[in-house]
Amino acid sequence: MKHYKLTFKLFFITFFALFSSIVNSEENNSKFNVYSGMFDFSDAGKKSTLIGFQHQNEDLNRDTFLGNFSPITGALVTADSAAYVYTGVQAQYKLGKINFIPSFTPGLYSKGNGKDLGHVIEFKSELQISLDIFSNSQLGFSYNHLSNASLGTKNPGANSYMFNFFKSF
């Protein structure tokens, strides 16, 4: 029960911190990603549904010789009360209406009643592919891998897939 409460506290604190910063800003130039899918689909004993959200402030985008980069912040929670709160960077590459979005985000993981990933610090590597459906909306699919980079005594990792809906404000 203790992990369950901590999981939801982390998830909602992150959500309300992001939401209040957006509401209080005079110019909203934000992109939200709401997603749902399967956490650790490759482990039949520990797979679980997940739901999450991610925020990107498009004012902080930077064009570099490697592409367009921006900071992202988000959180996910699984049906087994595991939670991951993260912040990091993503790149965006556009090919017409199709977007390729790789990202890397270190974060804090709470196993709740879910899979023990071996450490509280985990790293998420992700690839999203999305399609522009309207001028300010996208639908997409993403795959990610969580790993603690051998910081803990064990490092089983978790592979997940999600369906994404992006909306810019």
Rank of each mutant, 00 (worst) to 15 (best):
H145A: 10
L127F: 05
F169P: 01
F141Q: 08
Y35H: 08
T73F: 13
K115H: 11
D40C: 09
D116L: 07
F32I: 15
F32S: 09
F19V: 12
T14C: 12
G45Y: 08
D80I: 10
L117H: 01
A91E: 04
S142T: 03
G96D: 10
K46G: 08
F32G: 06
V89D: 06
S21I: 08
L95A: 14
S150V: 01
I121C: 00
N28Y: 06
Q92Y: 02
L127H: 03
K5Y: 15
G88D: 03
A149I: 03
G114C: 01
G107W: 00
A149L: 11
Y4T: 14
S110R: 03
P106E: 08
N164S: 13
Q128I: 07
K115P: 05
G96P: 00
V77W: 06
S130C: 07
G74R: 00
M162W: 06
I121L: 08
N68F: 06
G140Q: 01
Y109K: 02
S135L: 09
E122I: 03
F16H: 09
L6R: 12
N33P: 06
I22T: 14
A79T: 14
S150F: 09
F16C: 05
F11G: 00
R62Q: 10
A44W: 10
S25K: 13
F134A: 10
F16M: 07
S21H: 01
T153C: 07
E122T: 00
S147W: 01
S103P: 07
L18M: 15
V23R: 13
Q54I: 01
F15I: 09
K111F: 02
G107I: 00
L117V: 00
S160C: 10
N113A: 11
F141G: 13
G107D: 02
K94N: 15
N28S: 11
N155M: 02
H145M: 10
S25A: 12
G67P: 03
V89F: 11
N24K: 10
N155R: 05
V89P: 04
P71M: 01
F53V: 11
K9P: 06
K47S: 04
F100T: 07
H55Q: 11
A17Q: 13
V77E: 01
D80E: 12
L127S: 10
N99V: 07
S142A: 08
L146F: 04
G112V: 05
G74F: 00
Y35P: 04
F163C: 06
S36K: 05
N136S: 14
D116P: 07
S103K: 04
N29L: 08
L6V: 11
D43N: 14
G74M: 00
N29F: 06
E126G: 01
K111W: 01
A91N: 13
F16Y: 09
Y84E: 03
S168A: 14
N136H: 09
S150P: 00
M162G: 09
H55V: 13
T49S: 12
Y4S: 15
L66F: 15
V89G: 13
G52V: 01
G88F: 00
K97A: 12
L66M: 12
A82V: 02
Y93R: 11
